[in-house]
């Protein structure tokens, strides 16, 4: 029901700053949406999400990257070769990196398996940070690593729902990065995440006559019409570039 309401009124957009993606989405991600960015490793999820944050920071929207698997020091050193990146964004606190293990540590979330109460504590802490730093864009890389510690569908559902609600009420547009194996027939490891997220962007590798192409496809996006076609992307110092996948069926 809510979905229809959202569709009837044009929602404010959060332009990703990635021209190709904004074109696909008719201007950007509807503000406050929580998007599942999903794909196997090496498909460019982290790079794309970082660019989303850098553009946000450049547009004066405070942006937060929560790194679960890789240390954020490494990320800042290795993954920002963009021409448009400015070191000062980090110094000024426009672009903030936080390591999830530190959040776990500080909150005493040391159990291998989180309880429902732990989920609440974690979501509240992320909400606190978003409030304190006036965060408008958030990336969690990856949500799959968090889900490993949630284990049950019930808790994963609870986590995604709560984090989505916490972020959307704060007007924070978020990308949750999800790792799947290339052969998976669904968009998330547990199948739960995809049903709850406001949007799904699928990134993958496609083989065509022996060539391997990196692809991107917006599978679902609440609050906007969008192309569902596959696009081919390239990770360049000018950012992520997208062109439509050629079909070659034409004639």
């Amino acid at each position: 029901m809510d979905e229809n309401k959202n569709n009837s009124v044009e929602r404010e957009r959060c332009p990703t700053g990635i021209d190709g993606l904004d074109n696909i989405l008719n201007g950007g991600i509807p503000r406050g949406n929580t998007i599942l960015f999903t794909g196997s490793c090496g498909t460019g999820k982290t790079t794309l999400s970082l660019e989303f944050l850098v553009h946000g920071a450049l547009a004066d929207e405070n942006s937060l990257f929560i790194s679960v698997t890789e240390s954020s020091d490494k990320l800042t050193q290795n993954v920002i070769p963009y021409d448009f990146f400015e070191e000062s964004l980090i110094k000024k606190g426009k672009l903030v990196f936080v390591d999830m293990p530190i959040i776990y540590e500080r909150l005493g979330l040391t159990n291998v398996e989180f309880s429902l109460e732990d989920v609440d504590i974690l979501v509240r802490a992320i909400g606190n940070l978003v409030d304190e730093l006036s965060i408008k864009r958030l990336v969690i890389d990856s949500i799959t690593s968090v889900c490993y510690r949630l284990k049950t569908e019930e808790k994963i559902r609870e986590f995604i729902l709560k984090i989505g609600k916490t972020l959307s009420t704060r007007g924070c547009t978020s990308m949750l990065i999800s790792e799947i194996s290339p052969s998976a027939d669904r968009y998330s490891l547990y199948g739960v995440e995809e049903a709850i997220a406001d949007g799904i962007v699928l990134m993958g590798n496609m083989e065509r006559r022996g060539d391997l192409l990196r692809t991107l496809q917006v599978v679902k996006m609440r609050g906007t019409t969008h192309s569902r076609a596959k696009y081919v992307l390239d990770l360049t110092p000018a950012g992520v570039l997208l062109v439509p996948l050629l079909k070659g069926g034409g004639g």
Partner: peptide, 20 residues
């Protein structure tokens, strides 16, 4: 570009150079 069959990648490189 790895191969002349990767037409999308030709477009992407051109697009990148136009921006550059």
């Amino acid at each position: 570009v790895e191969s002349p069959t990767m037409l999308e990648n030709i477009m992407l490189k051109v697009e990148y150079l136009v921006r550059k």
